[in-house]
Write a protein that binds this DNA or RNA. Sequence first.
DNA 1: CATGAATGAGCCTTCATTCAT
DNA 2: TATGAATGAAGGCTCATTCAT
Lengths: 209, 209, 209, 209
Amino acid sequence: MIEPSSSRARGRPRKIAGPDDLLAAALRVFAEKGFAAARLDDVAREAGVSKAALYLYFESKQAIFEALVRSAVLPNIERLERLVAEWRGGAGALLRNLVEAIARVVVESEIAAFPKLIIAEASNFPDLARFYRSQVIERMLGLLAGIVRRGIESGEFRPTDPHLAARLVIAPLLFSALWKTSFARHDATPFDPAPLLRLHVDTLLRGLA
Amino acid sequence: MIEPSSSRARGRPRKIAGPDDLLAAALRVFAEKGFAAARLDDVAREAGVSKAALYLYFESKQAIFEALVRSAVLPNIERLERLVAEWRGGAGALLRNLVEAIARVVVESEIAAFPKLIIAEASNFPDLARFYRSQVIERMLGLLAGIVRRGIESGEFRPTDPHLAARLVIAPLLFSALWKTSFARHDATPFDPAPLLRLHVDTLLRGLA
Amino acid sequence: MIEPSSSRARGRPRKIAGPDDLLAAALRVFAEKGFAAARLDDVAREAGVSKAALYLYFESKQAIFEALVRSAVLPNIERLERLVAEWRGGAGALLRNLVEAIARVVVESEIAAFPKLIIAEASNFPDLARFYRSQVIERMLGLLAGIVRRGIESGEFRPTDPHLAARLVIAPLLFSALWKTSFARHDATPFDPAPLLRLHVDTLLRGLA
Amino acid sequence: MIEPSSSRARGRPRKIAGPDDLLAAALRVFAEKGFAAARLDDVAREAGVSKAALYLYFESKQAIFEALVRSAVLPNIERLERLVAEWRGGAGALLRNLVEAIARVVVESEIAAFPKLIIAEASNFPDLARFYRSQVIERMLGLLAGIVRRGIESGEFRPTDPHLAARLVIAPLLFSALWKTSFARHDATPFDPAPLLRLHVDTLLRGLA
DNA sequence: CATGAATGAGCCTTCATTCAT
DNA sequence: TATGAATGAAGGCTCATTCAT
């Protein structure tokens, strides 16, 4: 998870920048410029360290990018998987809950920038794209497909292909994340995906019923 | 529209490369690498001309990118607007038709690369992002919102916010386009968004009914 | 052979720098600083071109070094081999002639810098060292060993190991080349290996007799 | 002399690294890479200390190099001068003895790397080159010239320029040292200059007789 | 004494852009 | 119109050197 010093001891004020802070800075710069257009000068300045300091923790610019992706996604996926595993209730309500949970992350954290970054650089970093696809996308789609399947088995949903339905669940979330990172910047009113996602869940649940 | 020499005079076949060919080559390279990582060497080689020749038609790399975006989107938007204007029938059937029309373009042409490019470079080229948003996104969303509004007025759809519903229509199309350009590359089976989009329209129309 | 424009058409004044000129400049700078301490800025300035121009002809700094070594040695070796092949006379006189020929090259050309460069960088560029050893050193030692063997067979020389004797012939020549490139620079009187090499041949021929 | 802690107080074994150990490590690294390509990281690791520790004893990388040269050569020169001063016998036998003594050092110690280092860096460190030339080369040549002069005066040698003859004595020794440090590395059989140097002395003494 | 962490300066390399032909 | 050749302006990366502990 990319939060400043999230792995540091609580309560003890930190003086120096650790790898997590560097990754947090890198995320901000990469999210802004994209990987190729981002300059390590900017990442270093954003982190408050010298450019050379980046090389104390990472082998190369590409290694920073890879560490960023690898470090930021798993905790969130795992949180969602826990939410699903512990759920006691109907499939529809779970879907609604999941979408709201994801929406909160999209709104509040910088994580919304990852889809943009992955999409932009997938063909330049095929290994990373494969990693992200298997560790994030497929796991999340699998999670959603499982919920849909449960809903079908319980009679809550009509029979459909759960894997396709999972993509239908995701699509407006992805839309919101991309909109936030790419277009919302210049809007007068702050970006709020909540109404869209409420309508999304309402409509989808009706559609699947 | 990015087709080799599509805007050239009919009847007089050309051998040498014109601006449209250069843009077609640029689209292929930009789609593959992204704007920043793309080299004009590659664009020139892809177009079969010298690197200097690019500067006979365009002021700069950025100008190529802008001309690319500006040239490629309007014809398609206009085609869709014509399709909608000429439609005689229900709103649901029109939505289904529109989604299918867009899906065909996504599958068959290189146009599917534009969303990726725009999303990736929106913050580096705010003017271009604004242009794309107003000329493509807003027009398309407006089109769809109009259809939804018509459906609501005719009683075909339940009352919803047409602008939000329009985004729900778009989201799986965007998902398909991005999947094609970023992840489908390494799949064994060729990418086919048709089943997903069929389920999408089915579910959405049920959900909006 | 590293001579400005040696491969250019005679009589037509050249305007632009070709690879040979770049190598000639590189030799001067590498000879002065050594490979690692040499800056491509210096090579470029010495050649009168921009630093980027070096990359029109060579892949990297190392490639320049390798091309330099590979291009400069063969013509000279071949000249010596021709001299030996065409020799009609005694082994001793041939040795004296060879040493004088080499001495002239050492004095007049920049080639004397190669031993220093190879010796300094042999362990950093093992492939290049192997190339130089097999294409220059071994060939030259073979040439000399052959002459010594001829001298022994003709009774001109006493029996000795020709390969060792060849090294004895070379050693003062190497000494002279290294002295020129490393120590003679700061001497008041210009460096002249002739007296040393005269004594060398005199003494060696007496010693081998 | 570069031996671990050779100048330390006798009887008190030390565990931590002193300046002599650092110089010994520096010699190994410089001999391998050359001065410019050697990294202080490597020197520190070779010495088993931190990179910062080098700066407790030396002002700079260049200072290490200079201390290395200054410390390593004088003891050996003095040993040779003592050997010569104490010699009771003919000039030829003394020469043979000297060459053998030097050959042993070349084979057994790392000192053989100095000629390579000095030759490679002479133009980058003119002061050091001057120091080495006056304190090592000139003294050694003077020593040898003195022996030759004695041999001429005693009638053992024919009249020649003693200074030139001294260079003839040195040349194959230099050749051996350079061969060891630059080319012998990749040979299957270990490098042994003894046969060459035996033939050298034999031939030279005959030649001077 | 000793070091881990940090950095300023500099170098190799790339690439969008220009220009003479 | 078209290009091969050339370059200025960075950017990634390295490394000798410093400093707080």
